[in-house]
Amino acid sequence: MFRKMRRSDRLMAEIDTAVLLDNVQYGVLSTVGKDSNPYGVPISFVYMNNAIYLHCATEGEKLDNIITNNRVCFTVVDAVEVLPAAFSTKYKSAVVFGEAAVVENPEEKRSALIGFIKKYSPEFYEAGLQYIDNAFEKTKVLKIVVRNMTGKARS
């Protein structure tokens, strides 16, 4: 189903790919709409329990596309350094394929939102909990169940 990476010499170990997903700040979610048009959007995320969690408003193109076709691709790139003289670039990247769905379980939703606070605003944890309580009903959380994940690096 998934192609084998052509440059297997740059394949990252699964644990290193997970560490990359734990630490990188943003990724790009790619979906396909009912009109078959692709849609890629940069977005913040949390990687927990072998899943990627995203948050969004209660309506929008991401949600519409996922309702139409829940198969998604999520990519991240980090540690980029252009090597002009070598006509190349150092980098670490990950490509994740999976199925996305709205998180309906309130405990899982809250846990994911707390993950965002811990990742992006740890110094404002208590205020973040209050923010979650205030915005809980106005926020959707999406979960991408990872079906295939590859990491690639050039150092």
Rank of each mutant, 00 (worst) to 15 (best):
residue 151 G to D: 09
residue 103 V to Y: 10
residue 127 A to K: 15
residue 89 T to Q: 08
residue 8 S to Q: 10
residue 10 R to N: 13
residue 69 N to A: 10
residue 68 T to R: 01
residue 105 N to A: 07
residue 21 L to M: 14
residue 5 M to W: 02
residue 1 M to Y: 02
residue 91 Y to R: 06
residue 11 L to A: 14
residue 72 V to M: 03
residue 15 I to T: 14
residue 141 V to M: 09
residue 114 I to P: 00
residue 41 V to E: 05
residue 66 I to Y: 09
residue 80 V to Y: 13
residue 1 M to V: 02
residue 20 L to C: 07
residue 147 R to A: 11
residue 13 A to R: 11
residue 127 A to M: 13
residue 104 E to T: 07
residue 148 N to H: 15
residue 89 T to S: 13
residue 81 E to F: 03
residue 3 R to M: 13
residue 105 N to V: 06
residue 27 G to C: 08
residue 124 F to N: 14
residue 33 G to H: 07
residue 84 P to H: 05
residue 100 A to W: 13
residue 1 M to C: 00
residue 39 Y to I: 01
residue 40 G to T: 04
residue 3 R to C: 08
residue 62 K to R: 06
residue 3 R to S: 06
residue 76 V to D: 07
residue 108 E to D: 06
residue 147 R to I: 09
residue 9 D to V: 03
residue 104 E to I: 02
residue 127 A to P: 00
residue 27 G to W: 06
residue 24 V to G: 08
residue 128 G to T: 04
residue 48 M to N: 07
residue 146 V to K: 08
residue 53 Y to P: 06
residue 124 F to V: 03
residue 109 K to G: 04
residue 90 K to N: 13
residue 145 V to W: 03
residue 18 A to R: 15
residue 119 K to V: 00
residue 123 E to G: 14
residue 73 C to I: 06
residue 116 F to R: 04
residue 53 Y to W: 14
residue 57 A to W: 10
residue 28 V to L: 06
residue 91 Y to A: 06
residue 101 A to N: 04
residue 30 S to A: 15
residue 127 A to Y: 10
residue 140 K to V: 08
residue 123 E to V: 04
residue 85 A to M: 14
residue 146 V to R: 11
residue 95 V to A: 07
residue 56 C to A: 09
residue 25 Q to M: 13
residue 154 R to Y: 10
residue 24 V to S: 15
residue 8 S to F: 13
residue 32 V to W: 00
residue 15 I to H: 12
residue 78 D to R: 04
residue 61 E to V: 02
residue 137 E to L: 02
residue 86 A to R: 14
residue 19 V to H: 11
residue 152 K to S: 15
residue 129 L to V: 10
residue 18 A to H: 11
residue 127 A to S: 14
residue 57 A to Q: 06
residue 35 D to L: 01
residue 91 Y to L: 07
residue 87 F to Y: 15
residue 49 N to A: 08
residue 99 E to F: 11
residue 91 Y to V: 04
residue 62 K to A: 00
residue 132 I to T: 09
residue 128 G to E: 03
residue 51 A to D: 01
residue 72 V to L: 02
residue 137 E to Y: 02
residue 21 L to D: 05
residue 70 N to H: 12
residue 123 E to K: 09
residue 14 E to K: 13
residue 154 R to T: 04
residue 110 R to N: 11
residue 130 Q to Y: 11
residue 93 S to H: 10
residue 86 A to Q: 15
residue 86 A to D: 15
residue 39 Y to T: 01
residue 25 Q to N: 11
residue 59 E to D: 10
residue 9 D to H: 09
residue 7 R to Y: 12
residue 110 R to L: 10
residue 112 A to G: 06
residue 95 V to W: 08
residue 28 V to E: 02
residue 102 V to Q: 03
residue 141 V to C: 09
residue 69 N to I: 04
residue 136 F to Q: 13
residue 91 Y to S: 05
residue 36 S to T: 10
residue 133 D to N: 12
residue 13 A to C: 03
residue 142 L to S: 09
